[in-house]
Nucleic acid binder design. Structure first.
Lengths: 156, 156
DNA sequence: ACGTTACACGTTACAAGATAACATTTCAGC
DNA sequence: GCTGAAATGTTATCTTGTAACGTGTAACGT
């Protein structure tokens, strides 16, 4: 269920949306009301959001929206780097930093379910080099680590 | 569809199965005919196998097997490290090296669909250390990189 | 103004992936 | 043989994702 809690302050939220607006303009794409609303929903989530939960959250008097609606919006947002898919959860998150490259790293807390976008420094480079020695040319890397976040460790 | 091609030689295949047998004995688990057959099917695949394709491949005169059958067998094999799940494909592969720890790295070829299990050297350690600086304690890491494998690069 | 094109969005239907819950079998150990 | 634990069978259902086609709409050239 999609609730009221916020992973970002109101200020951060409007910054991210403004950033998205800017990026779309720059790329000649348009952040339509629907896409913008989905982005806002993603930003408001405390953690990764399921497609069907977003769908329900979008729903109006005319009943809940239909699956293609949300999947198309998510595809658009991901294409621009404004959202990411977390494969191991079948869930989606807004990009933390406005928009970033296609290779992402997430630290997913087993306890609270939040996902932290992360910069791994040289880990990605090393992986690319190691793979290249093997003749493999990496185009995109997904890294998802699960464990305990700082907050949950303190609490325990 | 699950076909006849082999990603491993007959010798490698029986080595892997023997290894699995040994591991089960050691852990007091039993490699039942069903589990063994699923493992063999996985080993025979040229690439990652979908659950429902395995299911169809298992099917007998009594029609195709039912989903829980295959998911339970896969869960068992994964618990022992004999198989891995590739999250970005919703697919499964036999472990290349008999059985390995829960943190895996796969290089997935966009062209031929094969998935190569890979040792990233220090990448994992670095990631763990970087995350720790952030207070995050990693339990398990999933790395899936997509791109072009050596064979497909040569062909192109 | 008019048609054309391109794109976003709506709608229906379905495909694909996964699990819950309960029944049955099997087999080691008493 | 009886019993309990583990594995498997069975039914039903749930979740996740897409294909295919229809409709609105804004930009463009004529």
């Amino acid at each position: 269920m999609i609730g009221m809690t916020h992973a970002h302050t109101a200020m951060e939220r409007s910054r991210l949306v403004a950033e998205a607006e800017r990026l779309c303009a720059e790329r000649g794409e348009s952040l339509t009301p629907l896409r913008r609303r989905v982005l806002e929903l993603l930003i408001e989530q405390p953690g990764p959001a399921k497609a069907y939960d977003l769908l329900a959250a979008l729903g109006s008097e005319a009943g809940p929206a239909k699956p293609p609606t949300i999947y198309r919006a998510l595809e658009f947002l991901m294409r621009l780097g404004l959202a990411h898919r977390i494969e191991s959860l079948n869930a989606f998150v807004a990009c933390d930093v406005g928009a970033c490259a296609r290779s992402t790293i997430f630290l997913i807390c087993d306890n609270c379910g939040r996902a932290e976008e992360f910069d791994a420094g040289h880990a990605l480079v090393d992986l690319g080099e190691a793979a290249a020695k093997d003749g493999f040319e990496i185009r995109r890397t997904m890294i998802e680590a699960t464990g305990l976040c700082a907050d949950c460790r303190k609490a325990a």
